[in-house]
Design a protein around this nucleic acid. Structure first.
Lengths: 223, 223
DNA sequence: TATATTCTTAACTTTAAGCTAATATTCAAA
DNA sequence: TTTGAATATTAGCTTAAAGTTAAGAATATA
């Protein structure tokens, strides 16, 4: 589970990150709204913890921007704000936030909130057959892929190949196995066919995401 | 739930929109009667909040026009008027309005009114098996469809195909699944039959609403 | 029964996914 | 460093899949 923490105060960033990492979450950080939107696009976090008062772009605007990004419509966003800034509570939910945390937070409280929010997400994602690995989100129902915020629909063979490779990130799939699963055991295709499809995927999703293991096959690289 | 707010005063528009959005409603706005009728046709709101005194076309006339539009006969319309303009109260109900709100309104009062009105609508819609997605409204009982204000009755097969596709917007339905649900598993029909029906739907409801995913199937595109 | 509407088919066209083949490039073993 | 087998890259071609049309079954309607 990936969490993006946004706050202009490095100390708070540090404290939150430390606690969340200890629970096994993958943490990204940003120090202002602009950065937050950029990283959210690239990293597709499951949860965003967003300070309201920030330089450059405040949390509310960032929240709206994130909500407009394809693939992030249902990302869980929770605001983080000093006690008493009461106007923002309304504005926050208006911008599409899901919850609200007041500073200072006790780690225990934070954890239980985060857990509760992510639990909700899990059931959502399952319902929609959505798989998220690294920067990529794959929607099996809609034959759609979101890569670093760019939505695209892949042709069938490419989609199936990507589905196979991402089903076990970092595992090397042998060329034979790929042929068997994506093409079926009866179909016979030339030796360069897989390469061509891999090339297309690299073109669309990024060269570095697919690694060739010479003499064996290919793998989808994750981290 | 979609709400259309109509007032010639941008400030009032702003205040109302802000408060309603905060409650999670989808808001459209218009600044006069003519615009209001046009947008109501296109967007098929569940509720219209309509100022009485407006340039171009007043609220009462707009109300009548909306009520005459197919698919909007049972849209909930509530007038908004300055306290004391008492003649209009009668004229308003005569024109087919459901309720009456006097300016200035306290947000809390507005909210509870809106909620109460929409609650009524919900039960109505459920009773009549009405489904609304984007510009399209589907009436299951009457095999009727309203597309951007144009009412039409679709032949059975077309209607069933549309019902299936809209049951999960954006999901790609495989050709096999479509055949199974719409035609049944025993019936065998030629390979081009589905295409022909899709073509008819595209003709009637708009090309872009149905997307082909080659080698897989079709989906109803929403947003 | 006559008539209109809906549904399916069949023949043909169009499209783009997928494949091939030819050439270039890489990489690891010798 | 060389070398050859494995992979990368391209563009063009092929073909399966979808689009289109009209005609005539099949149904429903008057």
């Amino acid at each position: 589970m990936k969490i993006l923490v946004v706050d202009d105060d490095p100390d708070i960033l540090e404290i939150l990150s430390y606690n969340l990492k200890a629970e096994g979450y993958k943490i990204f950080t940003a120090e202002n709204g602009i950065e937050a939107v950029k990283i959210a696009k690239k990293r597709q976090p499951h949860l965003v913890i967003l300070d309201v008062m920030m330089p450059e772009m405040d949390g509310i605007e960032a929240c709206e921007k994130i909500r407009e990004t394809p693939g992030l419509e249902s990302t869980i966003i929770t605001f983080l704000t000093a006690r008493g800034e009461d106007y923002s509570q309304v504005a926050g939910f208006d911008a599409g936030a899901d919850d609200y945390i007041t500073k200072p937070v006790k780690p225990k409280v934070l954890m239980s909130k985060v857990k509760a929010l992510l639990r909700r997400f899990k059931t959502d994602a399952k319902q929609n057959n959505i798989l998220s690995i690294g920067d990529i989100t794959i929607n099996q129902d809609e034959y759609k892929v979101i890569n670093e915020g760019n939505e695209m629909t892949l042709p069938r063979k490419e989609f199936e190949l990507l589905s196979l490779l991402t089903s076990e990130p970092n595992k090397v799939f042998k060329r034979d196995d790929i042929l068997n699963t994506v093409w079926g055991s009866e179909v016979v295709v030339g030796g360069r066919t897989i390469d061509v499809h891999i090339r297309k995927l690299r073109e669309k999703l990024g060269d570095d995401k697919f690694k060739t293991v010479k003499g064996v096959g290919y793998k989808f690289v994750y981290e």
